[in-house]
Structures are given as C-alpha cells and as structure tokens.
Design a protein around this nucleic acid. Structure first.
Lengths: 128, 128
DNA sequence: CTAAAACCTGACACTGACGTCAGAGGCAAG
DNA sequence: CTTGCCTCTGACGTCAGTGTCAGGTTTTAG
C-alpha cells in the first residue's frame, strides 16, 4: 500500500509517516519512481509508535525499544529490553503522579461544590 | 520573599516564575525599586501550577481553573468549576490509556524474557 | 564603602513533533 | 491526452515552556 492508505489505516498524517522514516522508526520499500510502499505489518508498527508517543516517549527512545517488537524472538540486544523495562517503570511513575493529581482535583471539585451547596441552601447538607 | 527564594521553595526556575506572571498565572507585589515580592501562599500556588503542567494542562487552561483554588469559597464562576471537571476527566482518560500501554509493554517484556529463557535453557520453562 | 549576589527588562535560542507550502513528477479513468 | 489526485523533496512555520545572554539597577555581606 502507498503512504496515503497507511496514514488512513493508522490514523496519522502523511507528514508524520515521512517524519517517522526520517527518524528511523519506519522503513519503506520504494517503487522505481520513488514512491513508498508498505505492508500490513507497518500498520501495526505505526500504531505502536503512536502509542509510545502518547505515553511520552521521544523518537530516540522509541528507536531503542523497537527491536523488542521487530523480532518477537532473536537476541534483541539487552539494551532494548532494558530500555523497555525502564520506560515501563517511568510510565508507572507517571500514572501514580496523575492519580495523585486527579485526587487533588477531586478534592478541589468537592470543596467548590460544597460551598456552592451552602450558598443555595444554607440549612441542608449534601444535595444530589 | 523575593523571586529567588520562591523559586527554591517551589523547585522551579526564576525564569519560569516570570513566565507564569507573564501568563497571568501568578501575581506579585512590587517593591519601590520594582522587585517582585511574594508570600507563603504563592509557594503553594506555584506548586499547584507545576502539578497542572505535569498533568498536561496548558497555561491557558490552568488560568481557567485557578479561580477554584483562589477562593475556596465565592462563586468561582461556573466556567472554572466546569473546566476543572473536564480536565479531571481528561486526566482519567489519560491514566486509562497509560495503563493500557503499560500492560502492552508488560506483554512485550514477557515475550522477550520468555524467548531469552528458551535460548539459555531449552528444556525448562519459567526460571526466576 | 565596596564587591558579590540577586534582581530587572527585553529578546533571541531551543527542542520536538508536526503543519504547510512550493515546485515537480507519477498514475488511473474518462 | 488530460484532468485530477497522489506522491516526492526540501524548507520554513508553529507552539509552549524554558534556557540564556546582555546591559543595567538593587540589595546584602563584609
């Protein structure tokens, strides 16, 4: 398939795909005229890349962990697996941080709603 | 206290504090000579701002929710509370996404470790 | 009183993942 | 053949938070 179709399938822009290739995250076979061609595998690869970006990894970091997906076997250099574990842990930390922040916001929301309640109904507590 | 101390206390750079003021997130009283002076309250405010940044909110969005912390009472414009709830939900979505991603990475890690195990010890399964 | 340290404004640099535009070539359908 | 859509490379623009530098004033310590 050509780049436009891959973009649609994976839900990213054509620009992004070329950028991924430029960064070494994605490879393509070229037709004689120079157009990029991809296979089904690339769809999943791009989706994975997107996932990693969403999780806060940079291009360089994604490159380092990709070997672990490339060959579900093979001696995917210790470094790649090591990096993968590292990033997993980083994500866990981030999740915990976000949960804490959400709890804080919930507290704020509660306080604001409580105050709002006392305003509209000075005698009663806790209205739906 | 002056800007340097606030920066130390809140764990941010002086540059950032000036930027926050420029963005309308932070206010300061000025000494006759023009230096910024802050109170203890600002320490917490800056820490809160940092938390919001870490949670992915932009300056503009933080501005919108700040009224909810300013006056733990008062009619903190419906909009602010509404926005706060919206962001809380966005964070929840993000957390769920991250958890999914982490699970995926755990799967990858497991597969890679499993393969590694079969390499070093073809007959046994699941080594510590 | 003096030197060091902190502060001021203003402005430009940077990073990273893209958007977007220009100018040119490729490819299927009518 | 030509119309229209897709693709190519290359390059500059964007956004947001922050680093950093310049040139000057203020505060603090000795």
């Amino acid at each position: 398939m050509r780049i436009g179709e891959l973009a649609d399938r994976a839900g990213v822009s054509v620009r992004s795909l070329r950028y991924y290739e430029e960064q070494g995250l994605l490879t393509s076979t070229r037709s004689p005229s120079g157009q990029r061609h991809y296979t089904e595998i690339e769809v999943e690869r791009v989706i994975f890349i997107q996932r990693m970006y969403a999780a806060g990894l940079s291009s360089r970091t994604i490159i380092e962990v990709l070997p672990c997906t490339d060959a579900p076997s093979e001696e995917n250099s210790d470094a790649a697996l090591e990096r993968l574990v590292l990033e997993r842990d980083r994500i866990t930390d981030h999740i915990n941080d976000l949960v804490q922040t959400r709890d804080a916001l919930d507290g704020l929301i509660g306080m604001n709603r409580a105050h709002r309640a006392t305003l509209s109904e000075p005698a009663t507590s806790l209205r739906s």
